[in-house]
């Protein structure tokens, strides 16, 4: 189903810049479709990113985050770090992506 694009590269100051794009409808539960029926809420509630199994980012989201969400942050790390991103949504959906820091 869903897919995650995960990129991480070394930038100045010993920092690693992480950028991620997730595929998800991020339905608020407030939108009505063309027939007037409410589209049920369906959004990512939590994203966790680890580097070499250590948590470097945890974020909780509501339906206000855009469709196909974007997340970017920096952490102190090194080239070669093994990154893992996992998201969970309000319908018990989940997906994971891995990438090595370039």
């Amino acid at each position: 189903m869903a897919s995650v694009k995960l990129k991480a590269k070394s930038i100045d100051g010993g920092l690693i810049e992480v950028k991620a794009l997730m595929t998800h409808p991020m339905e608020t539960g407030l939108r009505k479709d063309s027939s007037g029926a409410v589209v049920p809420a369906h959004y990512i509630t939590e994203v966790v990113v680890t580097a070499n199994d250590k948590e470097v980012m945890k974020t909780s989201w509501g339906g206000s985050v855009s469709k196909n969400p974007y997340l970017s942050f920096n952490y102190k790390g090194a080239v070669g770090d093994k990154l893992k991103l996992t998201w969970k949504d309000n319908k018990d959906g989940t997906d994971t992506a891995e990438a090595a820091v370039e």
């Binding site: 470097v56 980012m57 974020t59 509501g62 206000s64 855009s66 970017s72 942050f73 102190k76």
Partner: peptide
């Protein structure tokens, strides 16, 4: 917004206070 809270981020030691996302 109809639901004003968009996101919360936990910042562990070693992670910069510098986060980006996109919202409706």
């Amino acid at each position: 917004n109809p639901t004003p809270l968009a996101a919360t981020f936990t910042i562990p030691e070693g992670t910069s206070a510098d986060v980006s996302t996109r919202i409706k």
